[in-house]
Amino acid sequence: MAYVDQQMSGNKITALIIVAILHVVIGYALVSGLASEAYTKVKEITAAVKIEEEKPPEEPPPPPPKNDTPPPPVVAPPPPISFNAPAPQVQTVNEAPPLPPPPSPVALPPPPAAPPAPRFQPKGAAPKGNPGNWATSNDYPSRALREEREGTTGFRVTVGPDGKVTDCQITRSSGSPDLDEATCANVRRRARFTPASDGDGNPASGSYSNSIRWVIPKD
């Protein structure tokens, strides 16, 4: 048995003895009638004996917990990074611009309806008589005759529905204005035409083209 247990048992025995003595004294006092005197004695004995309450022994502090965590590994610092690498070369490529989108097809309007076939074959104006009689040697301009100027004049006339010349235009000059003027003047005066006709056989305006050759008459 440990020392602490022996000490605790001794205290308990002492307390039990004192309690037993008190019981004996109180019983004696009751029997002999000396209760008050016995109470005084018990009080003195109780005051003389001080029963100390046993305190449990203090337990030693627990040992510090063991740290099973391994120490952190030693990490070496990373090597320095070198930025002396050559810069990438940028090559410029000339690309052709994108082709424009093809034009959208345009719907063509439908062709016009063909006109109805004419009932008659249209005809142009036709001269009546011999066109060589429209200008004669007697119509030769006197100045051109004296200067012995010759030439050929081309003309075109407009013929009305009545067969008469309504207009005359020079299409090729002879080189002499007086010969050209004499050409249209004589054609207007002497030319007569069968008028042109349309698809219905009705008279219509038309045109006629020809030329006159001016030649100095020989004696």
Rank of each mutant, 00 (worst) to 15 (best):
K43Y: 14
E44K: 13
S104I: 13
K41Q: 11
K123W: 02
A15E: 13
V42S: 08
E58Q: 12
E150N: 10
I21N: 08
L16A: 15
Y140F: 15
P73K: 01
P80K: 10
E147A: 15
A29P: 01
E44Q: 13
T92R: 06
S137F: 14
A48M: 07
H23P: 03
V42K: 00
R156G: 06
V42F: 02
V74T: 11
W134F: 10
R143E: 13
A114I: 13
S137Q: 09
P98F: 02
E37P: 04
A20P: 05
G33L: 01
P115C: 02
A96R: 05
F83P: 03
G124S: 12
P70C: 04
S82M: 06
V25T: 09
V25I: 14
V42D: 08
L30N: 11
E54L: 14
A15H: 06
V31S: 05
K55M: 10
K128R: 12
Y140N: 03
I45G: 08
V25K: 00
A114Q: 11
P122I: 07
E44T: 14
L145M: 10
N133T: 14
G129C: 00
P112K: 00
A87Q: 07
V42I: 14
Y39Q: 10
G132F: 12
T152A: 07
G151D: 01
P110T: 12
V24Y: 05
S82G: 06
P62W: 01
A96N: 09
A38K: 01
A76I: 09
E148C: 05
P118E: 06
P103V: 10
F155V: 06
I45P: 01
P112M: 07
A125P: 03
Q89G: 07
L108Y: 00
A47R: 05
P60R: 00
T40S: 12
K12M: 11
Q121G: 05
R143L: 14
K128Q: 13
A126H: 06
K12T: 12
V42G: 02
P98K: 02
Y140D: 03
P127V: 06
A113L: 10
L34G: 10
P72T: 06
K41Y: 11
P86N: 04
I81H: 00
A96Y: 02
A35M: 13
P105Q: 04
P65F: 04
P64A: 14
L145N: 05
A96M: 04
L22A: 12
P103F: 05
G124E: 09
I13E: 13
